[in-house]
Design a protein around this nucleic acid. Structure first.
Lengths: 161, 161
DNA sequence: AACATAATTGGCATAATATGTCGTTATGAT
DNA sequence: ATCATAACGACATATTATGCCAATTATGTT
């Protein structure tokens, strides 16, 4: 699946810079900003999409306004570090829409870090005790609540390469 | 800045559902999918944008292909929990493009969690020792490397409200 | 340095989409 | 039931995207 390396010039990097921040910019304005005419600009965007450098476009929503007042980071440790245990855990976790991120991490303290959105403490308590803790193999769970999001979803740097 | 509550009906929720996953969908297809004609559909999207429910649109890029092979979670603890210390830390952290997320969290072990993208271990070592550890007030730093991203950037649930 | 080849560009015509207006329909309160 | 308000769909217009082609620019070889 790993395609040709694809050399990025300054135009491509500029495109990536801009669309990471303004995903719905029109091709015409994008072309203006990078200093190309619309045709080659669009061709480059399409190439970046096809090479998988641009994965997809997303709208970011205000989770608070949607009623999710609480964000938690949950560190999970497992009893056995076997592929079966991990696969099974992942399958269960995928079914919980409140879990918006799941990373496998190093460190003695935890195997997974989950990022979780819930409405309130009751919601969290239920999710932790009655859903996540009941998944086979989970031996430990340590929660950090997010007091403030200083920033999130910052663009990936494109400058030097 | 907190505007009127804005009651969301099933159309609005459906819009939020879709644009969280396909941020560049055309208004016409969006209208088709939610079962409205283009005019009211666009009006609703604009309203959601103006109410801040849709914060912005972003292209998601493949950080690996951009040369960032390593993702780390860095937990930082500070000597004093004063606004000045925190503000100063945030100001410095904002200047580092490799830090793509910064959260203030609860827990005895750390005050901040940073999500960091670097090219390799050398890169990380330099960033940690020569940049972040030198910020005033930083007393502890514990790193977890991300072995695998099971999923990231999952949509915020919109169903029940 | 001159040349041939390949790649990329810009312009243009056409198609698709967005945007604003207006008459009609649905909604909710009295 | 009546009225006022809000939301809808349809249509006309403006903007944007898309595909093609000639011209230009870059690349690599002798």
């Amino acid at each position: 699946m790993s395609v040709s390396p694809l050399v990025l010039d300054r135009f491509d990097r500029h495109i990536l810079d801009i669309v990471q921040q303004e995903g719905r910019i029109s091709n015409q304005e994008l072309a203006d900003r990078i200093g190309l005419s619309p045709s080659p600009c669009l061709r480059r965007v399409r190439a970046l999409e096809e090479h998988g450098l641009i994965l997809h476009y997303r709208a970011e929503v205000d989770s608070r306004q949607l009623g999710y007042q609480l964000m938690a980071l949950l560190h999970i440790s497992m009893d056995q570090h076997t592929p079966e245990r991990f696969d099974n855990f992942e399958r269960h976790i995928r079914e919980i829409p409140n879990v918006i991120e799941c990373l496998i991490i190093t460190g003695q303290a935890a195997d997974f870090q989950l990022k979780i959105l819930v409405r309130d403490m009751d919601d969290y308590q239920h999710l932790l005790l009655h859903v996540i803790n009941r998944i086979e193999g989970v031996t430990g769970a340590h929660t950090s609540f997010v007091l403030r999001r200083v920033f999130e979803h910052r663009p990936v740097p494109t400058d030097r390469l």
